[in-house]
Amino acid sequence: MSDAIQHGAVQGTDDAALRAGIEEVARLQDELVAELVGLGTTMSNAMDALPGFVPCGHAFGVVIEGLAASVGRFEPDYLRDLTAAVRARSEHVSDHRGVAQGMPMNVRAGLGSDDKVAAMRAQLLASLQGIAPYAMRAMELGVMSDELDVTLANTLAALGREELGAKELHDNLGRVSEAARIAMTFAV
């Protein structure tokens, strides 16, 4: 029939340790999103200051990897390293293009309220995070789209503006919807 299977010792964790680990990952993911908003702002600043300029694929690769990791990766060291890489890329773009570096902003902090704008901001962030796996797959296949990349950067920058209103959020959601279509098309 079948051979006997031997298992090693099973280690568990208590509720407090599990809760602390979950809270740490959530905090690190929030920090990553905040730095992504800063990078998006820096990239948008560079594109606004230099008509026709689109940052290199390295910058967009960091954006896409960061967005995917902000919901799909749970290893604290990986999240810390990626957050540092996002910050470094923002500094690089700022220094090399002579534009102001975008400041990190914790966009998730204001998402808990019941107002329409907060709900739209949450939808916009979730949409960006949902696009990321498709965009990563497209990058793996060697397919890049300036339209998709620019939309990701500009939308992250928009999330960093506290005064963002319902009309601008709605417009961004429309652009992100088109970016999602592009990413999904390229990922197959």
Rank of each mutant, 00 (worst) to 15 (best):
A126E: 15
A126T: 11
E31P: 00
E24V: 03
V37G: 05
D115G: 05
D114H: 15
I64V: 13
C56H: 14
M139P: 00
G160S: 04
L152M: 15
Y134L: 07
M136E: 15
L39P: 00
Q123A: 15
D171H: 09
G40S: 09
I182F: 07
P104R: 04
H7T: 05
H7E: 07
V37K: 10
V37Q: 08
R108P: 03
T42M: 00
H96S: 10
P133F: 09
V37I: 12
V93Y: 06
I22F: 11
I22Q: 08
T83P: 04
N45A: 11
P76I: 04
L67H: 09
D3A: 11
V10Q: 15
H170P: 00
A158S: 12
S2C: 03
A100L: 13
A68W: 15
G72Y: 02
G130F: 13
A9H: 12
V117C: 00
A20T: 12
V99L: 02
I5N: 05
M47T: 09
G160W: 07
L28Y: 07
T185M: 14
G102C: 01
A46G: 01
V25N: 03
G61N: 09
R19N: 14
A59D: 09
H92T: 04
V62Q: 04
A17D: 14
P55G: 03
D30I: 01
V93R: 01
H58V: 11
T41C: 00
Q6E: 13
F60P: 02
E24G: 06
V71L: 07
R73S: 14
D3H: 12
F53L: 13
L18C: 08
E24R: 15
R175A: 15
R89S: 06
G130Q: 10
H92K: 12
M105L: 13
V33N: 06
R80Y: 11
M139E: 13
P104I: 03
A158G: 11
E168I: 08
A85H: 07
T83I: 04
A59W: 10
M43K: 00
E75N: 12
A20W: 12
L36T: 04
I22K: 10
R121W: 11
L156M: 10
D146S: 13
A157R: 05
R108T: 06
A118V: 03
R87L: 02
T41E: 01
V86Y: 08
M105K: 11
A183H: 10
G160T: 05
E168W: 08
L67I: 10
T41F: 00
I182G: 01
G40V: 05
E147H: 12
A183I: 02
V54A: 06
L50G: 04
V176P: 02
R175E: 15
R80T: 06
A68M: 11
D3P: 01
A180N: 09
R89A: 04
V176K: 03
D149N: 15
V37P: 07
I22A: 14
D77F: 09
D15E: 14
M144Q: 09
S70I: 03
